[in-house]
């Protein structure tokens, strides 16, 4: 086992991918708890499609993918948040509209410029080779920012997630914290997207939260548990993809599915034990 790991980490691109991936899955898991509980899971999915569109445009313009994607996806996040809060427009339909639009734009831009080739496949399902050295540095900095902000605002995020009306009534600026969550989510998605793939990145947000909610009963333990589950699943996913030569993003999701099923089974066994 240790031999395999040593062999894996002799490749620089794998070391980069694992560093970025671990940080992204940690951030995604923390934010995911709040997003899933607030019924905002679809926002994560919508954002990843917007990210696909911006990636395509950035490649066409020969610009650095992250610097183009981050501002656009952050803007899209604020927009999706506004749409979800506004009860007049149905949120899920609007999200579907935006995500398919950006997907279509992305595909058209790619086919005009470089043609439909393996790039498209890589954007969709992720590629472990995608990380450059500057990407790694940017990812580490942004991930640390996400983590610090999450810890500082943990109590506020709990209150806003659990009961927005009450939080608002006690003078918490709920709009601000919703925007903070959307902002952090957007950054996390852009960072993780090229490795996990636009179609799969939202699983990093949704799976760990749902998995730990099967078993944990407290908000704090759900948060900590999903962070651990997410990091472990990512790492095992990468190792499996290295050993079996399977696509990284999909392997990580498969491990997440297995973890979810395990926790689910564990919960029903515990329940039955009590009854």
């Amino acid at each position: 086992m240790i031999d395999i790991l040593l062999e894996m980490f002799s490749y620089t691109f794998l070391v980069r991918a694992v560093i970025v991936g671990l940080l992204v899955s940690l951030c995604a898991a923390l934010l995911g708890v709040s997003l899933v509980l607030k019924r905002y899971s679809m926002i994560g999915d919508g954002l990843s499609h917007v990210g696909f569109g911006t990636l395509a445009v950035a490649t066409a313009m020969n610009a650095s993918p992250l610097t183009v994607s981050i501002p656009v996806v952050v803007m899209a996040a604020f927009m999706l948040l506004r749409i979800s809060e506004n009860s007049k427009i149905k949120g899920d339909a609007a999200i579907a509209l935006i995500s398919t639009s950006s997907l279509a734009i992305g595909v058209v831009v790619i086919s005009i410029t470089t043609g439909m080739n393996t790039d498209v496949c890589n954007y969709m399902f992720g590629s472990i080779l995608a990380m450059s050295k500057s990407d790694v540095i940017l990812s580490i900095v942004l991930a640390i920012v996400v983590l610090i902000l999450f810890v500082i605002f943990y109590n506020k995020i709990f209150a806003v997630t659990f009961d927005e009306t009450f939080a608002q009534a006690t003078g918490v600026k709920t709009g601000l914290y919703n925007m903070l969550i959307a902002f952090l989510t957007a950054i996390t998605i852009v960072l993780g997207m090229r490795m996990m793939g636009a179609l799969l990145i939202s699983s990093l947000i949704i799976f760990p939260a749902l998995t730990s909610m099967r078993v944990c009963k407290k908000f704090k333990s759900v948060t900590i548990c999903s962070a651990c589950v997410s990091v472990l699943c990512f790492f095992s996913g990468v190792v499996i993809s290295y050993l079996q030569a399977t696509p990284t993003g999909a392997s990580v999701v498969i491990v997440n599915i297995i973890a979810f099923l395990l926790f689910w089974t564990a919960n029903s066994i515990i329940r039955r034990g009590y009854a």
Binding site: L37, N155, K156, F158, A159, F162, D163, F166, A167, A169, T170, G171, V172, M213, C216, K217, K218, F219, K220, V222
Partner: peptide
């Protein structure tokens, strides 16, 4: 998923 204590304590947030 939150304990009753976590919910009660969040009343102090304001």
């Amino acid at each position: 998923p939150a304990s009753a204590y976590e919910v009660i304590l969040s009343g102090r947030l304001g």
